[in-house]
C-alpha cells in the first residue's frame, strides 16, 4: 500500500527549515517511501540534512530566484516535470502565503483541484481523504479526489507532530524553472523582518492574547507586560490587528497563526469562530471577558466573567510581587 511518490513543498528561512515543512514530512513519509521536497531557493544544501532526517529522500531546488516570487516559479517548474511524465501521486503544501500561491497556480496548470485547510489526511486506496474543519471547527468535512491527476493538498499548521525519523541527508537535485513570461513580472526589492523578542507565538508554551475588550490600543501594554511575566508570547484577535493596534504577526486565528500552547489566556476576546479555529487546540484555556455569554467561555477551562481592566492589573501586580 501507499503512494508511489509524494512531493512536499518545503519552506525555510536563513537555513532553518520551517516547522510546517517538518510537520508535513512526518505525514508524507507514512504515505510513501519516495518523498521529495520541492524547494524554491538557492540554499538547498544547507537544509538537505534536516530534510533527510525527517524523511525526505531527495530535494529538488530551483536555485536562487533573484527576487522573483516563489509561487509562480515553483508552480511552473512543477508543471513542467508533471508534463514530462515524472509527476507524483500527491503534492502536500502548508497553508502559507507561498504554499497557497504554488497550489493555486499549479492547479490551473494541470487543471486539477486543491483540497484545502486539511488538518488530517488518510489514504483510501491510492486516493487521499482530507479532513477539513468548517464553521469554526464544529463540523469536519472529509473530501477526496475523483481524478487521476496529482492530488494537491494544502495542510494547516500544527496538524501533525514534527518528528525526525533518522534518515540520511536528502539528495539535492535541480528543479528547472521555465520562462515565466508576464506571470513572472513581480520582483521582491527588499525584505523587512519585524523583530520580536521572547518566545515565538506558534512555539510558546504560554500565549497571552488580547482583543477588542481591551478598549484602546494603549491597553495592549497590559498583554505585553503579562506575557513577559509568564514567559509567554503575546497574541491578538483579528479585530485588533485589523484596527492596527498590533502587527499581523501577532494574529491568532484562521487567517493568522494556529497555536497549541499548554496555556492560552484570552483577555477581552469574545471568541469569533475565526479566532477559535486558531487556538482551541490549546491544552488549557483561560478566558477573561465581561460578557458572560461570549463564545470564548464555551472552550475555556477557567472562565472569568469580569473586566480585563480590573483583572489584568491585579494579576500583573500579584505576579510581580512573587518576583
Amino acid at each position: 500500500m501507499g503512494l508511489s511518490k509524494v512531493w512536499v513543498f518545503g519552506e525555510a528561512a536563513d537555513g532553518k527549515v520551517a516547522t510546517i515543512t517538518l510537520e508535513i514530512l512526518a505525514k508524507a513519509r507514512e504515505l510513501s517511501d519516495d518523498v521529495t521536497v520541492i524547494y524554491g531557493g538557492g540554499d538547498a544544501p544547507a537544509i538537505a540534512a534536516t530534510l533527510g532526517a525527517h524523511g525526505a529522500t531527495s530535494v529538488l531546488a530551483t536555485g536562487d530566484l533573484g527576487g522573483g516570487l516563489l509561487g509562480v516559479a515553483v508552480a511552473s517548474a512543477l508543471a513542467a516535470v508533471i508534463a514530462a511524465g515524472d509527476g507524483p501521486a500527491a503534492i502536500l503544501l502548508g497553508t502559507t502565503q507561498d504554499g497557497r500561491d504554488v497550489a493555486g497556480r499549479l492547479s490551473v496548470k494541470i487543471d486539477a483541484p486543491v483540497i484545502t485547510n486539511v488538518v488530517d489526511l488518510e489514504l483510501a486506496g491510492d486516493k487521499i481523504v482530507g479532513t477539513e474543519p468548517v464553521f469554526g471547527g464544529v463540523t469536519n468535512v472529509k473530501t477526496t479526489f475523483t481524478t487521476d491527476k496529482p492530488q494537491i493538498v494544502l495542510v494547516r499548521p500544527k496538524s501533525f507532530a514534527a518528528e525526525p525519523s533518522g534518515g540520511a541527508p536528502a539528495a539535492v537535485g535541480v528543479l528547472a524553472v521555465p520562462d515565466l513570461g508576464a506571470t513572472g513580472g513581480a520582483k521582491v526589492t527588499s525584505r523587512f523582518v519585524e523583530e520580536a523578542t521572547g518566545p515565538k507565538l506558534d512555539e510558546a508554551a504560554v500565549v497571552v492574547s488580547g482583543g477588542r475588550g481591551l478598549g484602546e490600543s494603549g491597553n495592549y501594554a497590559l498583554i505585553e507586560t503579562l506575557a513577559k511575566l509568564l514567559k509567554a508570547a503575546p497574541g491578538a484577535s483579528r479585530a485588533i490587528v485589523d484596527a492596527g493596534w498590533v502587527p499581523y504577526s501577532y494574529q491568532v486565528g484562521q487567517t493568522g497563526k494556529v497555536v497549541k500552547p499548554s496555556v492560552y489566556l484570552a483577555a477581552g476576546i469574545s471568541g469569533a469562530t475565526q479566532h477559535l479555529v486558531g487556538m482551541k487546540g490549546s491544552k488549557n484555556i483561560i478566558a477573561i471577558n465581561k460578557d458572560g455569554e461570549a463564545p470564548i467561555f464555551g472552550v475555556a477551562d477557567l472562565g472569568i466573567v469580569g473586566d480585563v481592566h480590573k483583572v489584568l492589573p491585579k494579576l500583573i501586580e500579584a505576579l510581580q510581587a512573587r518576583g
Partner: peptide, 28 residues
C-alpha cells in the same frame, strides 16, 4: 470539480470548564 465530499462529521467538542463572576479575586 474533480473532488467529492465523502463524509460530514461533528468535530470532537471541547468541554467548557469552570466559570466565575469576578468578585475582585479572579487574579488569585
Amino acid at each position: 470539480g474533480g473532488q467529492e465530499i465523502v463524509d460530514i462529521v461533528a468535530a470532537p467538542a471541547r468541554q467548557a470548564g469552570e466559570k466565575f463572576e469576578d468578585d475582585g479575586t479572579a487574579h488569585e
